[in-house]
Simulated scan of single mutants.
Amino acid sequence: MPDVRDQGMQGEPPRIFQIHYEDWHRSVCDPRFIPLDNRGPATEYLEFDLFERLSISPHVQGAALWGALSWRFTEKTGLDGSELFDLIAAHPGHDVYFCNPHPQHEGIYHNLWVQGETAHPRFVELSRAFLVAAGLPGEAVDTIDPSNQYSTANYFVGTPAFWSAYLPFVRGAIRRADANLSAGDKAALHSTAADDRMVHKGCTYMPFIVERLFPLFLRTAGAHLSGFKLPLPIPEDEMNVHQKLLREMKDHACRDRSSWLAACWVNYRSLYLQQQHGRQWAQRYLRQVTPGEIRFA
């Protein structure tokens, strides 16, 4: 566990740890964060297990806000430690601060479950099975979700109220799913088939499902909590005009509950992704729906 004695901070700032796994990672960690060496045997739940360990450690006792971020946080978000602290200070009073380092995905997929299908075979099918077995709404994989609910990274800074609700929510879902899943689905979910391209060192499906439970938590067990999505100017500036227009169009459709506008978004989105990835890719991954089939989160 880290040394939290002198971080050059005044008052009661958020207590933010930065996870690293190699000696050279430490050299790129932000000095505003508390270094946290996480070497050792890893479980398939990765950061989530670390969150649970931190939550019962003395290192977060008395902290009004705390979180643990990847050593690649600045690389992925464009925010350094000072900017993150400034953003949180400028928007006080929320239970959890989060962000999505891939805003280019927010306007081109129905939701983060559908986006996961492009990286992990059978992801939507197995995620639905997990949600149903966990007693959570399986239809979450079918809805069109607004961008303010899009988050696929474990970049959270939260209050004790957030952590005391979120961690049991996720752990409870895992336990119920393991108890109720069929033997075949359980074996598949805990297999490395999720990482058939070996991009994530042979991870199972579970960490990718867990990180997508956060928006569902905010809509269900965490609905009483206040979440603030942090803006990320650098990734936003890297989006092209179609990605921005598609996100705006989808957000308007979700806000107005307009099936007609959502169907228009589906058509525009499909044309854009066919141009980007080709017809074969689009036929494999894109979900075509009629206005009567539109569901909103």
Results as ranks from 00 to 15, higher is better:
Tyr109Asn: 04
Val199Ala: 11
Glu44Met: 15
Leu271Pro: 02
Ala183Thr: 11
Cys254Ile: 05
Trp24Gly: 00
Asp95Ala: 02
Phe162Asp: 00
Tyr272Lys: 03
Arg287Ile: 14
Glu47Pro: 04
Cys29His: 02
Phe73Lys: 02
Gly138Phe: 10
Phe17Ser: 00
Glu44Pro: 05
Gly11His: 12
Glu238Gly: 03
Phe214Met: 05
Arg257Met: 06
Asp195Ser: 06
Ile234Gly: 02
Lys186Tyr: 06
Gln280Pro: 00
Arg15Ile: 01
Lys229Glu: 08
Val210Ser: 01
Glu12Leu: 09
His277Thr: 01
His190Thr: 14
Trp66His: 11
Gln288Asp: 01
His277Ala: 07
Pro137Val: 08
Ala188Trp: 09
Lys229Leu: 13
Gly67Gln: 01
Glu22Ser: 10
Tyr109Leu: 01
Glu293Ile: 03
Phe162Ser: 01
Ile108Asp: 03
Asp6Trp: 09
Trp24Asn: 10
Asp23Ser: 13
Ala177Gln: 02
Arg26Asn: 02
Trp113Glu: 03
Thr159Trp: 08
Glu22Met: 08
Gly93Thr: 07
Glu83Phe: 02
Leu273Asp: 03
Tyr268Gly: 06
Leu181Gln: 03
Pro146Trp: 07
Gly8Arg: 09
His190Asn: 13
Pro13Arg: 13
Lys76Val: 12
Leu216Phe: 09
Leu189Trp: 04
Glu139Asn: 13
Thr290Ala: 15
Tyr166Ile: 01
Phe162Glu: 03
Pro2Asn: 01
Phe156Cys: 01
Tyr268Ser: 13
